[in-house]
Design a protein around this nucleic acid. Sequence first.
DNA 1: ACAATGGTCC
DNA 2: ACTCGGACCATTGTA
Length: 435
Amino acid sequence: MGWLSVMWSHLKEKGVVLPKITAEEISKKVEPVLREMERVGVMIDASILEGLEDKLETRISKLETKVHRLAGREFNINSPLQLAEVLFRDLRLPSTDLKRTKTGVSTAAGELLKLKSRHPIIEPILEYRELAKLVSTYLKPLPRMVDADSRIHTTYGQETSTGRITSANPNLQNIPIKGEYGPEIRRAFVAAPGCKLVAGDYSQIELRIVACLAQDKTMMAAFAGGEDIHAQTASEIFNVPLNRVTSDQRRVAKTVNFGVLYGMSAYGLAQALGISREQAADYIKRYFEIHEGIKKYCHDVIAKVAKDKYTETLFGFRRSFENFNRYNHNLVEAEERMAINAPVQGTAAEILKLAMVELIKKLKEVPHPNPLPADRARESARLILTVHDEIVVEVPARSAEEMARLVKETMESVVKLCVPLKAEVGIGRNWAETK
DNA sequence: ACAATGGTCC
DNA sequence: ACTCGGACCATTGTA
């Protein structure tokens, strides 16, 4: 099989240069890196989390009272069953347009949002849910998990269908970042005294990968020219000059680009954008007219899976699709979407793993015969986190700038695709500051 | 102990 | 009728 898998072997004539290594070997090499990251852990300022918890508990308590008052009785807001009972039986809110679950009407946030203008109880319920989630999943558990050095230690895994890395006990890959309190929570992830955090994250790595795998000329040109890819897409599907793209058009285009990675259906896009299926189908039609490479890629992947029952990443990681040909139309389409996504997500994971392997080598090597302070610092720089397209390193404060350049350079050069890879780096006293 | 529901991240 | 890719985890409620 060799280092460049059969499916993608034509890409080496298109400027793709990869290290001569298989997916299996990448997994094996990253394994000790992951074990080291687990051992080192990440420092937590528990007082920040506890302070925030107190603040949110107070607010939650008030929201609870308010919801109960508006409902006319006390009930468990955390129970979707009881909540549905209150909303649709007691308060007689219309459930016609809402999704159903096996047990009844869905009370998911997206569904409740549709009722926002119908009753004042919806808003406090949504806020209650948001805050209760943060407290129960992050603010309460994390401080209890710190060791004597105030550090928490996750467990990384590689047993996923696409080749991505997982994090569990605790999961450090779903720490909030959005919303009012996301950055607040990330402020609790700190560098040890005298250190800084350096975070590098790949910019649109999956879109760059699909542009390359699909040899999509339009998208390759956009990335080569350093364009704002979402604005570029907007310009194409709305047929307006790049400098005339509105923020709303860009938002739509961003969702379309996102949809490409997931094998978008008109239904899925319509739901994501809150538009009609017809309108969504029109966007997709426009998109595929311009992006013939992407269209062909989707077709080729589906044809391959129908024939071989598996997909393959750039480094040859296979995901098997044994249930591909079934009579259930929805099931088949779901499998098709997974098949389109698997090589992209999987290749991104491989590139990140390779970057981590390279980075840890460079952090440990002693580059100069006459040791300068920054070089000794290099030995004490340590990988501490990885979140799918991001790597976080804890480094001595005085070498932060040098380490930031090293992280960026390593991430960008670990493979050569037919489009440039771009990594953005940030330095901070805590995780929030690195953005 | 387990399924269902909902929610956080990339 | 159609419910976009990949994970982990808290809570409720039943077995």
